[in-house]
Every structure is written in C-alpha cells, then in structure tokens.
Design a protein around this nucleic acid. Structure first.
Lengths: 204, 204, 204, 204
DNA sequence: GATGAATGAGCTTTCATTCAT
DNA sequence: TATGAATGAAAGCTCATTCAT
C-alpha cells in the first residue's frame, strides 16, 4: 500500500520541475517564446541552465510541458463547471459561460496558448490544433447531447463547436492582449446571445 | 501629362521591392517568421542580403510591409464583394461569404496574418490587433447598417463583429494549417446559419 | 603662356574634389575615421557614392588626401609665421608660438592629424610618422640655425625637436579633445618657458 | 582564515580572463583595435567566440579592461621606481627616468595606450584623457613636491607635467612604431637635459 | 543532482566597392 | 561624369546545448 508515497528525492524533483514550469510561464508570457532564453527561465526558477536541462531535454520540451499543464488546468476547470449541471440545455449554456469565465480568470494561461502557442512557429502547429481541438471537443460533446435531447436541431456540431471556440477565442485574445481592458465578463451576455441563438436556442 | 510615368529605374526598383515581398511571403509562410533568415528571403528573391537591405531597413520592416500588403489585398477583395450588394441584409450575408471566400482562396496570405503575425512575437501584438480590427470594422459597419435598416435588432455590434471574425478565423485557420483539408466552402453554410441566426436573421 | 589656365571641366573636377575633402573633414572629425562610411562623405558632399569613387580610388585615399591637404595648410601657416622673423633666436621663439597658435586656430585640422590619424590603424602609422616628421623638421631646422648662430649650445636637435613637438602635441590634443576648454593661448607662456629654458635660452 | 583562498573554479575563471586579455594584447598591438575581430582574439586565446563573450560583455569591454590592466602595470612600475628615492630633486629626476625606462621596456603596452587607444575612436577619447591624466598626475605631484621643497621655482605644474608627458610620449611613440629602432635609453640624456633645465634645475 | 564555463552554428546588420544605366 | 542598386565578405553578438567538475 505504499503506492502513493514518494521518496524525499522524488518530491524535490517534482517540485523543481514545477518551479521551472512556473518560471517559464512567467517569462514566456511577458517576453514571448522566441525571445525567452533558457537562461532566463533558469534565472527565474532560481536554478542554473544545467539544472533546467536536467529536468527537461530542451527548450521546446519545456514549452510543450508548459502548455500541456496549462491546457489541462483550463480544461479541468471548464469540465468541472459544466459537470455541475445535468440538464443538456443548461450544460450547453454552462459550457459557454465556463469558457469565458475560466479564460477570463486565467489571463496568463490564456495568453500562453491562445497567443504564444500559435506564434511559436510551425513546429507547434500540430500542438495548437490539438489544444484547440480539446476544447472544441468539449463544446461539440455538449452540442451533441443537446441535439440528442432534442433541445436543438441537428447541426454539424464539430463545425459549430469550432466557430464557438473561435468566437470566444477572438474576444478573449483581444482582451488578453489589450492593455486597459474592461472585465471580460461584460462580453458574456452578447456572446451568449449570439452563439445560443445561432444554434436555435431561445435566450432569456 | 507625364504625371503617371515612372522612369525605367523607378520601375525596376519597385519591381525588386515587390519581388522581395513575394519571396518573403513564400518563405515566411512555409517556415514561420522567426525561422526565416534574411538570407533565405534574399535567396528566394534571387538577390543578395545586401540587396534586401537596400530596399528594406531590416527584417521587421519586411514583415510589416508584407502583412500590410497582404491585409490590404484581402481587405480590398472583401470590400469589393460586399460592394456588389446594396440591400443591407444581403450585404451582411455577403460580408460573411466574402470573408470565408477570400480567406479560402488566399490560403497563404490568410496563414500569414491569421497565424504567423500573432506568433511573430509581442513586438507585433499591436499590429495584430490592428489587422483584425480592420476586418472587424468592416463587419461592424454592415451590422450597424442592418440595425439602422431595422433588419436586425440592436446589438453591441463591435462585440458581435469580433465574435464573427473569431468564428471565421478559427475555422479558416484550422483549414489553413491542416494538411489535408476539404474545401473551405463546405463550412460556409454551417457558419452562415450560426452567425446570421445569432443576430436574429432568418436563414433560408 | 596658357600654362595656368584650366578648362571649365577641369575646374569643376577640382572643385568637386575639394568639396569631397571638405565633407570628409567634417564627418571624420566628428565621428572618427572608422565610423565614417563613404556614403556619409558622399551625402555631406552633396553627391553620390559613385561620385566619390570617381574622384578617389577608395576610402583610404580620401583620408590620405585629406590629411595631406590639412598638414600642408598647417605647415604653410607655420612657415609663414616663422618667415616673418630673421633673427635665429626670434625665429625659434616664433616657431614655438606659431605651432601653438596655428594648431589652436585650426582645431578640426589639428584633431584630424593629431588624434584621428594615429588612431586610424597601423595602415597609417607610416603616414603619422611622416606628418609629425615634417613639423619636427621645421623645429629642428630652427634649432640648428640657433646652434649655428651660437645662440644655444649644441644639442641632439632632432631629439629636442621631437620632444618639443610632443610637448605641444599633448597640450594641444588634450585641448582639442576636451569639451569645455580655456583658450589654448593661455598655455603658451608656460610651454615657452619650459621649452626655451630647456635649450638654454633666457626667457623674459 | 580562508579569506584569501579561491576555489579551483575561480582560479580557472580568472586564468581564462587573463588569457583572453593576453591574447587581445597580442592581436590588437599587431593589427590595431578596429582591424581586430573578436574571433581573432578567441583564436589567439585558444578558445571560442562564445567563450570570450562569456567573460566579457563585448569587444569594447575587452579593450577597456586591457588598457586598464596595462596602464595599471605601467603605473605601478613607475611609482615603484620613484618610490625608491626620497629627496624631491632626485625623485623628479627619477620620475623622468622611470617613464622612459618603463615605456621602453614594455613596448607593446606602450604602443597599446599611446597609439592604439587614442586611435580606437571617439568612443575612447575620455579613456585616453584619463590614462594620460594618471601619468600626468604622477609627474605633477613630483613637480609640486620639488616646488614645495624650494628645489625649483613655482610653475603651472599641471601644464608642465602635460608637456613632459607629451615630450616623452612622442619620443617613445616614434620609437615604438619605428621598425628598426635604436635603444630608447639613448634618448634619455637629451630629454633629461631639456625637461629638467626647462624647470630651472641644474643638469649634471 | 546542480553548476556554469565553453562551444559553435547561425543571426542580423554594415559597408567598401563595382558597374549598368 | 554621376547615380544608386547590387554584391558579398565580414563583423559583433546570441543562445541552445553539452559536459567536466
């Protein structure tokens, strides 16, 4: 039953790992991926270049690990929010609100994978597609459920989900990049009206 | 009456200028901005590094000139398409179709400024906002006209335009990045239904 | 008897030649030789790079012509001043005053060949020796005359002339480089006392 | 009691630092500052460009560190020689001899800062003034002491020191640049006579 | 495990020089 | 004669990565 224990050393290793990713998030979000040197990350993580390379095979790997960790966190938050509802209609609505909300409350993570990732170069195109794809899947699943429940008419739910995600993405990205922004929440009602009505749901 | 003439030399200079931008488009679209060296552009333009630097003050300037030229072209095409209609309702519909269509028929330009520009680094964030802003303005103007004509109910047209653009952007970008894509046109009806219904228009 | 006439074209050529040297003096004195580009000279001379290369075979040649012209001018001024005296003792004194005076009233030329020339690189070492040598010869000649006239005791006049020139050079150079300098003339009495007494002359 | 120890690594770092400066001295003295590339220094130091840049922030910094080190060494030697005497008159005489001697026995260092530094460009003018100023101060201090002791009459000692330094500088520089020179020591008696007599001291 | 010195390929940019017009 | 577009050889500098300690 010692399954979940970790040795002292393992704990330290994992902590170092996390500390490096935290540092990488900081500097990459403020400078951009290309402009960030590995030594910047090392300094910010209070370690050395060699230390970074002990934990990660290279700069790309740090970035990939970082966006995976970030995407996972965002995804979990969104899924948790949706899971609180059971009725398909409300779940669909909740999904929309959850996305806007979660992105809005995690500005740096949002910027990381809505802005930095696509811009980090063609090497990461596939990753970008995957990341977006995950969220699109979440939306599509709710749309499918709503269709199955008869709440909305049949659609090409994959395409609709893509469009939803894109609409949210643009609004959120501009907000994330903008320097003097109003709260993102203000945009939710307008978006909600557009996207729900767009699939034929009545909007209160 | 010699107003519009150019000397032989001026013509050659302008041609070289264009040739460099054409070459830059080629290599930047296929490799990404950061991974593109000035010498790559020079080689592709069949000139030398020094030649490139004679025409442009630096790498950034090439990129900016390139995205300006590309954005202008796309914008003109879209505006021309919309201008063919006079009825506000049809213009709004036309705008949507025009965007999808123009982006779909200029894949490289689309990729350049929907994918490369945001990813070229924080230095270009402002430019990205501007570029997107231009197209959002176009959409917003048509939405405003439709509201004024009573075709659709009043909305926060700036936000709606942003969302429209984002929806189109995502669908188009995935298509632009995807390696084995179906024609983009197939996505239009679905998008059209979503976005027009979203603002309260009946969709045939 | 048409020996001294010049065709219109020759006049223009010579004027252009001079104009380029004037421009070169301007920019080299303010930026330094290495930091001066040929195109800087061309611009300052209100011509083109090709124009400059028509008149001079290369950048080095411009610099050499410039320091030759400058040195000649300074030398002529000094010689003229000395020539006004006939008594060997007064000539020696006049030489000293002339050097300080001429350098002091031609600050840019002075800087050019007391500061820029030695620093323009080993390529110009020989030239520097020559330039200094010319002035040292002038001094040595007057010293020799004074020795011959019995005004001063025999010395290694070449060495003394070198030292005189060096003393003047240092004082003048510091003055030429210094940003907020007193008039150079203030230094003359002190220098005069040192150098004349140094060769055994009584100083009033 | 471990105050003065250095770790093995620190020693190695300092040695590398010195090795780079040694190499820089070699190549700069033979080629001139501008004509020396960082990679030349790297090669001469048996390391790589990156290695050089690890120890110094840039080319200018190498040069500045080098002339500082060189000037310090020359200064120390001169001060040591003067310090061996106590009588003001003999100290003044010793200062003169020390300068000629030290410069004469460190030809490369002498060339570095009497010839290369002024010529390295306007960026280094201030440094040149400083370097010369240090030696001028040393001379001026001895002159002041001699004045205070009544050995010589009052003078503008700063100016006299400048002139002394200039005289020595010129003689030494010509010797340093000249390709087939006689020993510098031969020039000392002549200089000594000129400069000491110049301030009113009897010369044996 | 961690450090940081070292490597070296590669980048952007500059500029003396040439030459077709 | 004059122009300025073009060339191409450097140059200074950066940085991902390696590795002896």
């Amino acid at each position: 039953m010692m399954i979940e224990t970790e040795s002292r050393a393992q704990v330290r290793t994992r902590e170092r790992h996390e500390r490096i990713l935290d540092a990488a998030l900081d500097v990459i979000v403020s400078r951009g991926y290309q402009a960030t040197a590995v030594s910047d990350i090392a300094t910010a993580a209070d370690t050395s270049k060699g230390g970074v390379y002990f934990h990660f095979p290279g700069k790309d790997a740090i970035f990939l690990a970082l966006i995976d960790r970030s995407a996972r966190l965002l995804r979990e938050r969104v899924i948790a929010r949706i899971g609180a509802e059971t009725d398909p209609t409300r779940r669909l609505d909740a999904a929309l609100g959850a996305l806007v909300d979660v992105f809005g409350t995690h500005r740096r993570l949002t910027r990381l994978f809505l802005v930095e990732t696509p811009g980090a170069g063609p090497r990461f195109y596939t990753k970008t597609l995957e990341l977006h794809g995950d969220f699109i899947e979440i939306i599509a699943a709710e749309l499918d459920a709503a269709v199955a429940a008869g709440t909305i008419a049949p659609h090409d739910t994959r395409l609709i989900a893509q469009a939803w995600f894109g609409a949210i993405n643009e609004v959120v990205s501009q907000w994330a990049v903008d320097t003097s922004p109003h709260p993102l929440g203000e945009s939710l009602p307008g978006l909600r009206g557009l996207l729900l009505r767009g699939v034929g749901m009545a909007v209160s």
